[in-house]
């Protein structure tokens, strides 16, 4: 995409329509979806179906209520929101909670802002944030991964294990996905594969994942150099938790990320900064969701102050 990002008119016509972009995003998520079914069984599929169904129904009802074209539910954006939300949830979660999450994601995350394109925050993350606040216990109950051969009902996630018990999970497990966690955050490898697909197809801006991941690496690396006993090493920070999912699929949402290159750098480095801050100094083990939501709220401001000025335009 390089310099083709334009915020104010004239807009360059792009042959890709919303449904087509969403279709490719869906393709890119297939490795993560397959992995979640492999690691957590058919339960993963049930969670995803519940999430998608609730998202689509909510979208339909509120398009109807707002007297808009209900055909918009087929643009795929509600479908992707449903999938992304499901990927951030623990596999054992109660299905009614999943449905509530998708309902909130679409209603509060999207429809109240005027539907697709008008939302400030990533809808899937709004849904997840609501669930985190509404059902903190259920959202922090993790079952063991099928491939990890751990004989226990509930286990700690790699980040939770580090935060509360100071246990480091080996890189190989984190990379391949033999760890507990939400449906879509287990295997860093498969998430990167999906992300690269989007990158090659040029549906996402390369600066976002690069900015997020490198800033997490740098900030946590500084802390690790200061005290390697107390703080986790940067590679662990990159591979553990929902960072890969967030950096490749959530932070890159075209509606809720900035358009000018400088703004994108500030945005993505900001996300990385907050991730490290929350993970290491906060009360929660994971902070990718809140980091992205926080930086989402800065997007309009960032775009406003970094917008390229027309020749001769005064400040």
């Amino acid at each position: 995409m390089m310099s083709l990002i334009v915020s104010s008119s004239p807009h360059i016509h792009h042959e890709d329509s919303v449904p087509k972009i969403m279709l490719h995003v869906f393709f890119s998520l297939i490795p993560a979806i397959v992995a979640s079914v492999y690691f957590f069984g058919s339960r993963a599929l049930t969670v995803m179906i519940a999430s998608i169904a609730s998202a689509l129904i909510t979208e339909y009802l509120f398009l109807l209520l707002r007297k808009k074209d209900t055909g918009a539910i087929f643009d795929g954006s509600a479908l992707i929101t449903g999938i992304l939300l499901a990927l951030t949830l623990p596999p054992s979660i109660n299905l009614s909670i999943v449905a509530i999450g998708a309902f909130v994601a679409i209603l509060i995350g999207k429809q109240v802002f005027g539907g697709f394109g008008g939302n400030i925050f990533n809808p899937a993350l709004v849904g997840r944030a609501f669930l985190q606040a509404a059902f903190p216990t259920q959202m922090a109950t993790w079952v063991a991964n099928k491939a990890s051969h751990i004989d226990a009902l509930t286990v700690a996630t790699p980040l939770g294990g580090f935060k509360f018990s100071h246990v480091l999970t080996p890189y190989k497990e984190l990379f391949l996905g033999n760890v507990s966690g939400s449906l879509g955050e287990t295997s860093a490898l498969l998430l990167i594969l999906g992300g690269i697909y989007l990158l090659v197809r040029r549906y996402i801006d390369w600066r976002i994942p690069v900015g997020v991941l490198s800033s997490v690496f740098v900030f946590s690396g500084i802390l690790w150099l200061v005290n390697s006993k107390k703080y986790p090493d940067p590679v662990f920070m990159l591979l553990a938790g929902g960072l890969m999912l967030g950096a490749w699929f959530m932070a890159t949402d075209p509606v809720t990320s900035p358009v000018t290159p400088i703004a994108i750098w500030i945005y993505s480095i900001g996300i990385g900064f907050f991730v490290v801050l929350i993970r290491i100094f906060g009360g929660l083990p994971e902070g990718v969701m809140y980091s992205i939501l926080i930086m989402n709220s800065f997007v309009p401001l960032l775009d406003k102050y970094t917008r390229t000025r027309m020749l001769g335009e005064r400040k």
Binding site: S96, I100, A134, F135, Q138
Partner: peptide, 8 residues
């Protein structure tokens, strides 16, 4: 399952 957020 109570929605804890509602009493916050």
């Amino acid at each position: 399952i109570p929605w804890q957020v509602m009493i916050l």
